[in-house]
């Protein structure tokens, strides 16, 4: 039996690191504190400032799937280290440590279930796993999600949060861009809807492939969305970037998003969209 095979698929190791610890949580933008329970009830969005705390697949699935009921697919696809990659750390060790720390096996999970009674396939990325970077496993799981949506004719929702392609798998990571895009082209032929939800951050190869290819491209407020990172752009052009550059609002203004939706309203809005599409 391979080392990764788990008998119990519901194993949860330590809790995720996306959310700060403690009963009281500090809101970065305002410096105010808020009670954890109140924050959770509002889907990890500060009701006062609208600040969206970053959450992962566990939270998005619980927000979107009716009764938090869903079947996870493609979860037996596991990362390996095809290039024997080593920087200051071995990639092998990085994978193991991140798995232990995040309780996740890689940076994307796929659930099949109902959203307000609509059958849907939801693939959600996890930033807490090596910056949500896309390597072979993320690419393959997404392709399984797209294939599943195509076979069942279920609308597909991909929630992105990623710094881009995973360096430690080099060109294999790069090839996940055409690989996922090709699958989306097939999905389109079957006229199955695809909604791309961009959250903070969505950059690099993820933006330059499936994130920008939705029939509907939507985003949470204030998310960083772009191709190149702000630091690289600043270095290239040698001057400061305008305020609000590469935010969701900026992308909406420049015509790359259909709309922005706050997380507490996400499910309702998706449901409405799916309902109108089906009529």
């Amino acid at each position: 039996m391979a080392w990764f095979k788990r008998k119990d698929s519901n194993i949860q190791t330590d809790k995720k690191k996306d959310m700060p610890e403690g009963i009281w949580v500090k809101v970065p933008e305002t410096g105010e504190t808020i009670h954890r329970r109140e924050l959770e009830e509002n889907h990890w969005v500060d009701p006062l400032s609208g600040y969206h705390f970053r959450v992962g697949s566990e939270e998005y699935f619980s927000i979107l799937f009716d009764g938090n009921k869903f079947t996870e697919i493609a979860d037996d696809i596991m990362p390996t280290d095809p290039l024997d990659f080593e920087d200051r750390k071995k990639y092998k060790d990085r994978i193991k440590q991140t798995q232990k720390k995040s309780g996740l096996s890689d940076a994307c999970r796929v659930g099949v279930g109902k959203l307000d009674k609509h059958n849907v396939v939801i693939a959600c990325m996890d930033f807490s796993f090596i910056g949500g970077s896309m390597g072979s496993v993320v690419g393959e799981r997404l392709c399984r999600a797209i294939d599943h949506a195509r076979e069942k004719k279920y609308p597909l929702i991909i929630i992105s949060q990623s710094g881009g392609a995973r360096m430690m798998e080099s060109v294999y990571s790069l090839m996940q861009l055409p690989k996922t895009s090709a699958k989306l082209a097939l999905l389109e032929r079957e006229k199955v809807p695809y909604i791309s939800v961009m959250t903070n951050p969505t950059t690099g190869g993820v933006t330059a492939s499936y994130a920008m290819l939705g029939d509907f491209n939507i985003a949470e407020p204030g998310a960083l969305i772009g191709f190149a990172g702000p630091r690289v752009i600043r270095q290239t052009i040698g001057r400061d970037l305008p305020e609000g550059f590469q935010t969701s609002e900026y992308l909406l203004e420049h015509g790359f998003l259909d709309f922005i939706v706050a997380r507490p309203k996400l499910k309702k809005k998706l449901s409405k969209l799916l309902r109108i599409l089906r009529n």
């Binding site: 895009s181 090709a182 933006t207 920008m212 752009i233």
Partner: peptide
Amino acid sequence: GAYPGLEAEERGQAEAIAKNLKLMSV
């Protein structure tokens, strides 16, 4: 690399590349 400039982002560098990937595959 694709140009990492301000106007490139403004005009949708990522979207332009993504569209090509999808087109080329079919």
